[in-house]
Design a protein around this nucleic acid. Structure first.
Length: 1008
RNA sequence: GCCGCGGUGGCGGAAUUGGUAGACGCGUACGACUCAAAAUCGUAUUCCGUAAGGAGUGAGGGUUCGAUUCCCUCCCGCGGCACCA
């Protein structure tokens, strides 16, 4: 029988009681219990809670409560991601202060959240708009800037006309073939402008590789992999028919041993370069003070200074180390190595020794052997100011052992010729081999040679390459502009293709276009055949090397282009003498000495023959974070009168958002209109200094909030190591699939940067990720005001109560994955069930049948197994089965108490009400909250009944079933079948075989 | 086009180390209560068939005593990537 209850009254009363008694406070970390950090994506305080918020917060609350009752110390915090466009737009529309609007919304939303009755840890909260929060966002940005992770970049950006701001690549969504803004769904344009960027591409490999150890749904991992788009291929050089440089080059340092080293390397290339130090060409007093930026910046600065003094090419060289997969900042290493010593007072050798010692101690700390990647950056500055920069990576192992002995006298210069064998090699001895030096000599060759580097995954088709294609953005188009005889035609094409990019993507026809570069051609690296060079926009400037070798016989795009321009098509791969469809692998033909090899073998053999090498390339671009809007974290940068950016020093953080701003979007950043910000900047830094006027993407704010939750009032650091040891990593992160390639990627990157800086204790922030589905309107469509199918949770709660709404959301289906339509009948069913549960006490008896006792324990078992798998729907179903039977057969008080405990995570208010009524009928005397009790444990002896129903099949078809004692043998069942008329009639004498699975099935196979 | 996930009654879904397909809820039908309706309670509810029986987990094929579950081919839906070399 149903028994109505007043959900509203019960829920308000207990919510107040819980709050007053702080029953959900986690308290300090208690190491006698396991911990679990359960995180839900922090909401934007839009001012009204929608049903999606309920799905996002109330359902995981079931898990949290269950875990707490099971003895785990669970942290379940909540906060607000309160910067962002909606506040600003609302403020513009209604002429309000976004700050006040946001603060009011947070208050309103807090009330709504309270009405959920969730077991949140409000004592661990954070709001991204708090000055004490964004102060740390800014501090991290300044640290990132100092390390070169944050930089001012130039290039094509996504501009949202509606939001009047730049957005990141991840925030561009595809709607019916249009590039649209993630926030407002309006179309975006491409635009060239300087941008604040974060070097997420430096972390591309780790962001891919580290996915494998995460307990995330495969779909999300795969989406991230695809977004990063790592491709393993090969880089092959096609020399241009242009002379190589072969004169004097000045090395931008007076470090003689380093110069000698490079000379040695140059001699091993085929170049005729004469490398000289500044002293050797008569510049005696050459020194530029290093001022704390990265080593490569410093060396480049030196080279530029030098280049201004002379009329010769200048080579800048820089060496850095990556130890144990983590980026060891050479500047920081140097600083740590020198400690309190002044660099100016030391000789080059002394510095070298100190740095070497420091590296050695790092090596020792890591067990005497350090796997590392050695990165070498070289920049060539030509007399006309053109700069070409290359980097070479290769794995090395640093060790403090040489031939088993610890070598204490290792010179620093030897470090950059460390072999992949794990031994130090000395400059003077001949342990170096060409092989070890190959990456460096390759890079040197590149700097001085005039070759087009192409990226390919199919070097096995090299002999089928009949022409070369450059992307319109390729630097050679400007570099060799004076050699191109049909310059005008090329320029028109370049202009058109750039315009095309700015236009509607829909207008791009799939028809290939391009122009041949007259006067410029390339040499096939193996046949020395002269190949024409084209510029065509089907080759992308920002992928691979921006140049491809075209193999029209085996690539569809090249085929289309070759057909259109009547270029030769030369097949070089076949399979059983059949021509192959594009992109397939097979046996090589027409490939000189490689003919007859299969594709896989040929790939490395041909690449080696050309002197090419393997190369990784990525689809991922750096994260552009500058926004030309008001309501965000000001980027803590000021520009000196020369326009050079400097970080705002720590003591001026938080670098506050000015309030004297008209933030109507005009395309000009609103902060540029603030008098106060300008005055503040000049007052602190001096006349002529200018503030940065862009604010940060709000995804920056949310990239680290989980670190602040756990230590939210710390004034000294954004999150202490102690707090992180207590709670990090996040054990389960519940959220929506829309964040797969945005927030989830950004915050992983952010965490890794902090990890490399030694500021966080783990490399990955989230152990397990659970993506929930979407709640659709009753009509099965996405809820939207225009469709009029929006379910307002407040109305639902007023109608049936918070417990019912929460339980209904949990009952719709498994939490992970699917989208579910809201069903009014369905929620009524849950309410009926809870009313039934409310009336269950009417069925309490002195004794209960064994069936009920067993069923109770089976239900405990089922619920205990299902909740950790987020299969709340089947757990609730089990509870329903129990209540249905218990109503009919009656239950003891003891069983009743356990049933209330069992339902407590699902219906926290109702169960508390029933629990408290257990106590002697007195209303005033309170006993401990049900939510502080232990979850019931199933008695294994009661899980299995003595009899089982066994299915009887004949020839695999079900013919009936029998109730037999558990554990009986085959013979017993066969006898039982013979005694059962209904079953026996299906049998004749010709039994061929009997298959018996104990307690489950018996199948009799008859001969035909 | 490539990659990932999925396809089970009128609906949401349940059941996979291969062993009674459709738990639980919704909806529907009939009955009880009622002057009546709602609410509630009871019974039924995959389809075809009066029944015996037969068919049935996107389609087709295979392995097996037995397939929603494993394998192959294909179709459809959702999501991601896409002129990415």
């Amino acid at each position: 029988m149903l028994k109505r209850f007043d959900a509203c009254e019960i829920e308000k009363r207990w919510q107040k009681y819980w709050q007053e008694n702080k029953i959900y406070d986690t308290g300090p970390r208690d190491t006698s219990r396991p911990k679990e950090y359960v995180l839900v994506e922090l909401p934007y305080p839009s001012g009204n809670l929608h049903i999606g918020h309920w799905h996002a917060f109330a359902v995981p609350d079931i898990y949290v409560r269950f875990k707490r009752m099971s003895g785990t110390q669970v942290l379940y915090p909540m906060g607000f991601d309160a910067f962002g466009l909606p506040a600003e737009n609302a403020a513009i529309k209604n002429q309000l202060d976004p700050k006040k609007w946001t603060e009011q919304n947070m208050l309103d939303m807090r009330k709504q959240l309270d009405s959920m009755g969730n077991a949140f840890n409000w004592e661990h909260s954070a709001s991204t708009t708090d000055e004490e929060y964004y102060r740390w966002t800014q501090w991290m940005f300044t640290e990132f800037f100092k390390r070169g992770i944050a930089y001012r970049g130039e290039g094509q950006v996504n501009w949202c006309l509606c939001c009047q701001t730049v957005i990141a690549n991840e925030q561009v969504h595809n709607v019916e073939d249009d590039d649209c803004c993630e926030r407002c769904d309006s179309k975006i344009e491409k635009k060239n402008m300087p941008q604040w960027m974060l070097r997420i591409t430096d972390y591309a490999d780790r962001l891919v590789d580290d996915l494998k150890d995460l307990d995330w749904p495969e779909a999300i991992k795969e989406a991230q992999r695809q977004w990063i788009g790592r491709a393993e291929g090969y880089e092959i050089d096609f020399k241009l028919n242009v002379d190589d440089y072969d004169g004097v080059v000045v090395f931008a340092s007076n470090n003689k041993s380093k110069c000698a080293r490079l000379k040695y390397l140059l001699s091993s290339t085929k170049l005729k370069i004469d490398l000289k130090t500044p002293e050797e060409i008569g510049i005696s007093d050459f020194k530029v003070k290093e001022d704390g930026e990265t080593l490569s910046d410093n060396s480049l600065k030196k080279a530029r200074t030098l280049a201004n003094l002379i009329d010769l090419p200048v080579l800048a060289d820089d060496t850095g180390f990556f130890i144990a997969g983590s980026n060891v900042d050479p500047v920081k290493v140097k600083r740590n190595a020198l400690q309190d010593l002044k660099e100016e007072e030391l000789s080059q050798d002394q510095i070298s020794n100190l740095v070497l010692e420091h590296y050695k101690s790092l090596a020792t700390k890591q067990g005497g052997e350090v796997k590392a990647t050695w990165k070498h950056v070289m920049t060539l500055i030509m007399p006309d100011g053109e700069e070409k920069q290359v980097t070479a990576n290769r794995p090395v192992i640093l060790t403090n052992k040489v031939n088993g002995q610890i070598d204490h006298n290792l010179p620093i210069r030897s470090l950059y010729i460390v072999k992949a064998t794990g031994k130090y090699a000395n400059e003077q001895n001949d342990q170096e081999t060409e092989l070890d030096l190959q990456p460096i000599t390759d890079e040197l060759n590149k700097l001085f040679q005039n070759a087009i580097s192409v990226f390919t995954t199919r070097p096995d088709t090299l002999f089928g390459a009949t022409y070369i294609v450059l992307a319109p953005e390729h630097p050679y188009l400007t570099k060799y502009n004076n050699l191109i005889t049909n310059r005008e035609e090329v320029d028109i094409y370049l202009k058109n293709s750039l315009k095309k990019r700015d236009q509607d993507r829909l207008d791009i026809s799939k028809e290939k276009t391009g122009v041949k570069l007259e006067g410029l051609s390339a040499k096939h690296p193996l046949t020395n055949e002269i190949l024409p060079i084209y510029v065509a926009d089907y080759v992308l400037g920002n992928y691979g090397t921006g140049a491809v070798m075209a193999v029209p016989a085996h690539d569809e795009r090249d085929y289309d282009f070759a057909t259109k321009f009547s270029l030769p098509i030369k097949p070089v791969i076949e399979n059983n003498e059949e021509p192959l469809p594009f992109t397939q692998h097979g046996k090589l033909i027409n490939s000189e000495k490689f003919t007859g090899l299969n594709s896989e073998e040929a790939k490395t053999k041909i690449t080696n023959e050309t002197g090419g090498k393997t190369k990784r390339t990525y689809r991922l671009r750096d994260w552009s974070i500058g926004r030309q809007r008001y309501w965000g974290v000001p980027i803590p940068i000021v520009y000196d009168p020369e326009g050079k950016p400097h970080t705002v020093p720590d003591k001026y953080l938080p670098w506050k958002l000015p309030e004297d701003v008209d933030f109507t979007p005009t395309g000009l950043p609103p902060l540029a209109k603030s008098k106060e910000l300008l005055e503040r900047t000049e007052k602190i830094f001096g006349t002529g200094w200018r503030p940065e006027v862009e604010t940060m993407d709000t995804f920056v704010d949310s990239s680290w909030y989980f670190l602040r939750y756990i230590d939210h009032i710390n004034k000294d650091i954004f999150s202490s190591t102690k707090a992180q040891h207590d709670w990090m990593p996040v054990d389960i992160y519940f959220g929506g699939p829309e964040h797969t390639t945005m927030h989830l990627l950004y915050s992983r990157f952010w965490q890794k940067v902090l990890f490399d800086m030694g500021l966080v204790t783990c490399d990955e922030p989230y152990n397990k990720r659970v993506n929930r589905g979407l709640i659709l309107g009753p009509d099965g469509n996405k809820m939207s005001k225009s469709k009029g199918n929006v379910i307002n949770p407040d109305e639902q709660v007023a109608d049936v109560g918070s417990d019912t709404v929460k339980m209904y959301l949990a009952f719709m289906g498994p939490y992970e994955g699917s989208n579910y339509p809201w069903d009014m009948g369905g929620i009524a069913g849950i309410r009926r069930f809870l009313e039934r549960f409310y009336g269950l006490s009417d069925h309490i008896k002195k004794d209960e049948p064994e069936e009920i006792t067993r069923l109770l324990h089976q239900t405990i078992e089922k619920v205990t197994n299902d909740i950790p798998q987020f299969k709340f729907n089947t757990a609730i179903s089990a509870l329903m089965i129990f209540v249905n039977r218990a109503e009919r057969l009656g239950l003891t008080n003891e069983t009743y108490r356990k049933a209330i405990l069992l339902i407590a995570p699902f219906a926290p208010h109702l169960s508390e009400e029933l629990w408290q009524r257990q106590k002697s009928g007195s209303d005033t005397e309170k006993i401990d909250s049900i939510h502080l009790q232990s979850f019931p444990k199933a008695n294994p002896d009661l899980l299995k009944s003595d009899t089982v129903e066994i299915t009887i099949q004949v020839n695999g078809k079900k013919r009936g079933s029998l109730n037999i004692p558990r554990g009986e043998k085959e013979a017993y069942v066969l006898t039982a079948i013979k005694n059962d008329d209904g079953l026996a009639k299906h049998l004749d004498d010709k039994v061929k075989k009997v298959i018996y699975v104990q307690d489950k099935i018996l199948n009799i196979v008859l001969e035909k």
